[in-house]
Each structure stands twice: as C-alpha cells, then as structure tokens.
C-alpha cells in the first residue's frame, strides 16, 4: 500500500471540513444542544428517572448516536458524490491506487470527523447534565465502529446517488426515522408490548442500547447482540463496497 494517495485524499477531505467549519462542526453541536435544552431540561424535568439515570443524562448516548449516524452518512456520501457530480473523480479513478486506498482515504476522513463531533458533543453535554462513563473502552469502541460503519454506508450512498435528491433520500427517509424510533429518547420498556417486539427489528436499537450501556451499564438488549449487530453492519457495508469496485458500479461504465 502506498500511503501518499491515502494521505492526499484524507487531507483534502479534512481541508474541506475546515473550509465548512460552520456547517460541519458548529451546526450539529448547536442542534444537539437544542435537544438537550428541550428534552433534557424542559421536558426531562417532568420525566422520572430511567433505570436510575436522570432523563437528561439518559438521552446523551442516544443523541450522540443520532448525530453520529446522520453526520457519518452525510459526510461520507457528500465526500464521494461531489467529485462524481463535478467530474473531478476522473483523477481518482485514473490514479495508481487500489480501491482499498480510496476507501480508507474517504471513509477515514468522514469517520474522523464524526468521531471528533461525537467527542465535542459529549463534552458539550457535560455542561448540561452530570455524566458518568462506566466502560470507557467500550464507549470508544462503539463510537469508532459506528462512525466507520455509517461512513461506509454513506460512501455507498454517495456512489449510488445520481442526483442531490437521492443523496438526501436515504438519510431522510431511513436513517433519521430509524434513529428516532431506535430508543434515542426512551427505553424500549416504555413502549406497548407489541411495539417492543417490532422495534427489535430496528438495527439502530442495538447501537443505541450498546452505547448507552457503555455509559450507565443499563441496556435494552444484550451487549453481545449490540456488538454482533454493529459487526454485521460493518461486514455488510464492506461487502457492498467490494462489489461496487469489482463491478465498477456507477463509477466505471
């Protein structure tokens, strides 16, 4: 593997983040802070503790997950979609680099940005609510794995999308609803029994539950199931990307 191309792509993508600092870092932090104010302080004060954790603190891992998922997908999808849209992707496709190097450059940059954002939001939330992190190692593992997996998903969406509308379609119609219904703001025991079963089909439930466990030691589903689910996602995304590059899907006619 040649590191120069990976570095070139990674640095160019990080430079894009710096150029759009307001949109890429400041705006997610502000919107997450708004959630804290509305759900944590205003509404949360009327909700009793969940599993011994105050509602404000309870939603922190869910909010970080919500942001991590949407930002990873949108960063990575835009990162590869834009050169495809402007035509400058010719250079990447004609360069003496392997597909793996392209993916590491783009997905690595998108995931780095999401992880950074996640940590910033974690820091911000500590101003609003008392935080404890029971399993820091697992917290970081879930953070990194989720950022990488959903950046891979975003990369796939960016290659699949042939217009700006489709770029928004998956995040808007699938990711956001799944995240909101994935237990970011509630524990699934709070649902009627029927919906408790239905909700288990939502993969995001496993991510949020596992991540919350790493903070407070409480979870909706078993931690092993969470780890299995994220690994399954990761493998599925890698498989899809390997297929894309092998066939040249939407990249090479």
């Amino acid at each position: 593997m040649n590191l120069h191309p990976v570095r070139a792509i990674y640095m160019a993508e990080m430079a894009r983040t710096r150029r759009t600092l307001l949109q890429s870092i400041v705006s997610p932090v502000i919107s997450t802070s708004l959630y804290f104010v509305v759900f944590g302080a205003a509404i949360g004060s009327r909700i009793s503790e969940i599993g011994g954790v105050s509602y404000g603190a309870f939603i922190v891992p869910g909010l970080i997950m919500l942001m991590l998922l949407t930002q990873s997908v949108s960063n990575a999808s835009f990162g590869i979609f834009f050169p495809k849209f402007s035509g400058s992707i010719y250079e990447i496709l004609s360069a003496p680099i392997s597909y793996l190097e392209i993916v590491i450059g783009y997905v690595g940059a998108a995931a780095s940005k999401s992880i950074l954002l996640g940590l910033i939001i974690l820091g911000t939330s500590s101003f609003f609510v008392p935080l404890e992190i029971a399993h820091p190692f697992w917290m970081l593992t879930f953070l990194v794995l989720t950022a990488v997996t959903f950046s891979l998903l975003g990369f796939i969406i960016g290659i699949w999308a042939d217009g700006f509308d489709k770029l928004q379609l998956v995040p808007l119609l699938i990711i956001t609803p799944l995240t909101f219904l994935g237990g970011s703001f509630y524990s699934i025991d709070m649902l009627p029994p029927f919906w408790q079963t239905v909700t288990l089909a939502n993969p995001v439930v496993y991510l949020v539950s596992g991540f919350r466990w790493s903070f407070y030691g409480i979870s909706d589903v078993s931690v092993a199931a969470s780890v299995a689910m994220i690994t399954l996602f990761l493998v599925a995304s890698l498989g899809a990307i390997a297929w894309i590059f092998r066939t040249g899907y939407r990249l090479k006619p």
């Binding site: 040649n2 120069h4 191309p5 570095r7 070139a8 792509i9 640095m11 360069a95 003496p96 680099i97």
Partner: peptide, 9 residues
C-alpha cells in the same frame, strides 16, 4: 499538490 500525492509521489 493533491494530484501529485494521489499518484503516489
């Protein structure tokens, strides 16, 4: 400069 890096130099 990006192009140079991309081509592995």
């Amino acid at each position: 400069s990006f192009s140079r890096g991309l081509f592995g130099k």
